[in-house]
Amino acid sequence: MTDAAENRFTTRTEFEGHFLACVARSNATLSLFDPDFAVFPLGTSATDAALRDFLARGGHVQMAMHQTGLIEREYPRFLRLLKDYSHRVECRVTSRALRTLTDSFCIGDGEHIVRRFHSDHMRGEAVFNTPLATEISAERFAGIWAESLPGLHATTTGL
């Protein structure tokens, strides 16, 4: 898995496959941004297993989103993972000023990216083993992260 690879996608199935490939190729960090993570397969057993493997190997996940309601209602498997690995997963909610952002991406280790150009559409690209392809989104994520507040917690009290 060391050769550079770039893939365009237009379907949910292709997106999910590339997302899982990004998680599998990553070792240290996953940085994710999406308005609500409705399209990310966070509720599937395959994603749960991939994320648990990533986290058990010492990886860290940072997620930024506009709203947490969908995850809280629809992804109990992800909430269990968050509880089990709360020391390795941090979720933040964007400020009002950022609510107009509509892109969606997952960056793995600063080398891999799965990016949808607009969160309302499935059209996007997955680029692996190409640090240069992640730079703009990584800078965007750093800005989003700095402007966001802690949001989704392992328990309802945030503990």
Rank of each mutant, 00 (worst) to 15 (best):
residue 25 R to T: 13
residue 16 E to N: 05
residue 35 P to I: 12
residue 29 T to S: 15
residue 40 F to R: 01
residue 48 D to P: 01
residue 39 V to D: 09
residue 20 L to Q: 08
residue 35 P to W: 08
residue 51 L to I: 06
residue 42 L to Q: 00
residue 25 R to P: 07
residue 49 A to G: 02
residue 44 T to F: 06
residue 37 F to I: 13
residue 17 G to S: 09
residue 12 R to E: 10
residue 62 Q to A: 14
residue 45 S to T: 12
residue 23 V to Q: 01
residue 13 T to E: 09
residue 14 E to F: 07
residue 33 F to P: 02
residue 45 S to C: 05
residue 21 A to Q: 14
residue 56 A to E: 04
residue 55 L to T: 09
residue 11 T to A: 08
residue 14 E to Y: 06
residue 50 A to I: 09
residue 59 G to P: 04
residue 49 A to V: 11
residue 53 D to W: 05
residue 13 T to F: 03
residue 31 S to E: 14
residue 26 S to P: 10
residue 59 G to M: 05
residue 31 S to Y: 11
residue 53 D to V: 09
residue 14 E to Q: 15
residue 51 L to G: 02
residue 33 F to V: 07
residue 62 Q to Y: 05
residue 29 T to V: 14
residue 58 G to I: 11
residue 31 S to C: 14
residue 24 A to G: 11
residue 51 L to M: 07
residue 22 C to N: 10
residue 46 A to G: 03
residue 65 M to Q: 02
residue 30 L to C: 12
residue 31 S to R: 14
residue 22 C to H: 03
residue 58 G to T: 07
residue 31 S to T: 13
residue 22 C to L: 11
residue 58 G to L: 08
residue 26 S to K: 06
residue 14 E to C: 10
residue 23 V to L: 06
residue 63 M to E: 00
residue 33 F to E: 00
residue 46 A to W: 00
residue 26 S to Y: 06
residue 45 S to P: 00
residue 40 F to P: 02
residue 26 S to F: 11
residue 42 L to I: 06
residue 54 F to D: 02
residue 17 G to R: 02
residue 50 A to L: 06
residue 47 T to I: 04
residue 27 N to G: 15
residue 55 L to F: 10
residue 24 A to N: 12
residue 13 T to Q: 09
residue 56 A to V: 09
residue 24 A to I: 10
residue 35 P to R: 05
residue 43 G to H: 01
residue 12 R to N: 09
residue 11 T to F: 06
residue 38 A to E: 12
residue 15 F to S: 06
residue 52 R to F: 08
residue 22 C to E: 03
residue 55 L to W: 04
residue 21 A to D: 10
residue 37 F to R: 02
residue 49 A to K: 03
residue 23 V to E: 01
residue 44 T to S: 15
residue 38 A to H: 08
residue 15 F to L: 15
residue 18 H to M: 11
residue 30 L to W: 06
residue 56 A to K: 02
residue 14 E to N: 07
residue 25 R to I: 12
residue 16 E to D: 05
residue 12 R to F: 09
residue 51 L to K: 00
residue 27 N to Q: 15
residue 42 L to T: 00
residue 58 G to F: 07
residue 58 G to D: 04
residue 16 E to Y: 01
residue 33 F to I: 10
residue 58 G to E: 03
residue 43 G to E: 02
residue 49 A to P: 00
residue 53 D to H: 12
residue 20 L to E: 08
residue 60 H to V: 14
residue 34 D to I: 10
residue 39 V to Q: 05
residue 46 A to Y: 01
residue 38 A to S: 15
residue 15 F to M: 13
residue 57 R to I: 04
residue 35 P to M: 10
residue 24 A to E: 08
residue 43 G to R: 01
